[in-house]
Design a binder for these strands. Sequence first.
DNA 1: TTGACATGCGAACGATCGTTCGCTATACTG
DNA 2: CAGTATAGCGAACGATCGTTCGCATGTCAA
Lengths: 197, 197
Amino acid sequence: MAKDTKEKILSAALELFSQNGYAGTNIRELSAALGMGKSSLYRHFESKEAIWNALLDEMIAYYAERFGSAEHLPPVPESLEGLTQMTMRMVNLTIRDERIIMTRKVLTLEQYRDPRARALATKHFLTGLTEMFTRIFTGMMEKGLLRREDPQMLAFAYTAPISSLIHLCDREPEKTGDAMAQIEAFSRHFVKTYGGE
Amino acid sequence: MAKDTKEKILSAALELFSQNGYAGTNIRELSAALGMGKSSLYRHFESKEAIWNALLDEMIAYYAERFGSAEHLPPVPESLEGLTQMTMRMVNLTIRDERIIMTRKVLTLEQYRDPRARALATKHFLTGLTEMFTRIFTGMMEKGLLRREDPQMLAFAYTAPISSLIHLCDREPEKTGDAMAQIEAFSRHFVKTYGGE
DNA sequence: TTGACATGCGAACGATCGTTCGCTATACTG
DNA sequence: CAGTATAGCGAACGATCGTTCGCATGTCAA
């Protein structure tokens, strides 16, 4: 029961922090969103900062479990078209999942204030995707699907533009349709440029 | 004299807002940073929000004047090496200039809260650079320096990775050296891929 | 010189902040 | 059954927030 309430608190905190930031969120709003009294929150967390730290713990643990282990790597595509399709599937997931959106937003808002948020932001926005696609592209080169070039450079050149459009969707959700189309066009352009031998 | 004080207030506000965000900054800090009493601020701005809006006005006007007019466009490079050199010069400027750094940070922090910050953020981080390099690449294609492909797609593929590394420098300044090296490597990779005919 | 205005200051206001307190109800332990 | 821990509540605390007030000073036009 206690575990469950804690989880609900962190979930509501994620929602509010991602909208208004840590400083812009107060305990009264948070407890109201949970339908409980302000003071009840303190049965589960000793302070507002403790809520933030627990939320960050959770985000770090989730990221490590979800993207950190090799077992969760997507399979190397069997074709160039497969790369585009896999990309669109991943992007769709990451752009539609409210929890992932809120995680990106909160990391964006707190990256200059909290060192752990900073480190996780860099993983989320840059190095994580690059490492993941470095492996994928290495596999695709071995299969002869991609030209043999520095796979890390290719992964960076591929993921950074996509990541920037994901940020655009977070910022201006009404542009999601256009952004998705642009990501697909970019992926096909990439495939045309680097595909085959 | 009044104009001068207003300008100083906005300058100090930019510094604090970019560090702690709008909600995380209070009038006492701001006035202390200016070496003046809290109440004196209200001689120049009617509220904290008015300071924010004036700062945003200034940022919007500055952007329009600096990047919006065609006259401020950098010249089309005469060679592929020139593209890389021009890129490094621009990046160096944008990564070292404290005021530009703070502008990016404040737009990052307030993009979900303020519609005008949101719009300016998209210009700063995405469309502005893309449009600029679309023209540059169009010019380079006409000179035969670049393969004839969709210049807008090429501009997006070129600027988005660079922009993501600029964000990295804002977030983790100690990585600036590495980021600059990576930008240069990426630029040369791009030139090798798309250069010549 | 005088009067009006712009600009500065410290004190203080009411609102809101994070947090603590004392109390009650429920649920499990012996 | 008694006893203890858990989790909820409203009230209230002190700190801090944005803002206002009354007053002093300096400047400049009349």
